[in-house]
Amino acid sequence: MRITQGCFSFLPDLSDEQISAQVEYCLRNEWAIGIEFTQDPHPRNTYWEMWGNPMFDLRDAKGVMVELAECRTAYPECYIRLNAFDSTRGFETVRMSFIVHRPAFEPTLHVIRQDVRGRTANVTLELQR
């Protein structure tokens, strides 16, 4: 199963050239770039680990790509995503987020549905490795 989260999630994985083009777009809009990684891609897991600090003063996509390569080397069996932060309103807002690296084997999310009273259903997601 392929985990689908963020922009471009239903497209094939982006190449490094395509990732770099998206970073350039973000930098042209003066958005800061942050890199995050996790082994738990559950949809409710919004707290991924940060790779360094967000790159607020960066003006060239090459710097992001160097950091991304280092993160991929350090955490090859993790999901890695880029976040673009917009601070034009005085606080950081995520404008774009997309997965840029996946582990060789992706876990499966298993949906458990329990019908209870009337038309009510309880739904639980379990991560199966």
Rank of each mutant, 00 (worst) to 15 (best):
N29D: 10
E36L: 08
I80Y: 12
S15R: 01
A104F: 09
Q22E: 15
F98I: 00
V94I: 14
T120R: 15
L109Q: 02
L11P: 00
V64W: 02
S87N: 14
V94M: 07
C71W: 11
E70G: 03
Y25L: 10
E126P: 00
F37E: 12
M50V: 04
A104C: 01
Y47D: 15
Q39F: 09
G52S: 03
I35T: 06
S97Q: 13
A121I: 08
V100D: 12
R117W: 08
H42L: 14
R129P: 00
E24P: 03
V111N: 02
D115E: 15
T124W: 05
E36C: 07
R59M: 08
K62C: 04
H101C: 02
M1Y: 00
F10S: 12
E77K: 13
R129W: 13
A61F: 03
A21H: 07
V94D: 01
E24D: 15
R44S: 13
M65R: 06
Q114H: 10
V111F: 02
N122S: 09
D16P: 02
R89N: 09
D115A: 08
E70F: 15
N45A: 07
D13N: 09
Q18S: 10
R2Q: 03
N29T: 02
V111M: 09
S9L: 01
P107R: 04
Q114F: 02
A21R: 11
D60K: 11
F8I: 03
G52T: 09
I80A: 02
A61M: 00
L82G: 05
G6Q: 10
E92A: 07
A69K: 15
P107H: 02
E92K: 10
V111I: 11
K62W: 08
N29E: 15
A121D: 03
D13T: 03
D57T: 05
T124D: 13
V94Q: 07
T124C: 06
A21T: 06
T38S: 15
E49P: 05
V111P: 00
Q18N: 10
I112W: 00
Y47M: 13
R44Q: 13
L27F: 11
R129M: 08
G34L: 05
M50D: 14
V66P: 01
W48E: 14
S87I: 07
F37D: 03
D13L: 09
E49A: 13
M96L: 12
P103V: 06
I112V: 10
E49Y: 11
D40Y: 04
C7K: 12
G118E: 15
E126S: 09
Q128W: 08
R81S: 04
R72E: 09
N45I: 01
M50L: 12
F56T: 04
Q5M: 05
R59T: 13
S20H: 04
V23C: 05
Q5W: 05
V64H: 11
R113S: 11
N83M: 06
V64I: 11
N122Q: 14
E77Q: 12
M50W: 12
I35D: 07
E106W: 06
Q114M: 07
L11N: 12
F91T: 08
R129S: 00
E106T: 08
I35Q: 06
D13K: 04
C26F: 10
V100S: 06
R2A: 09
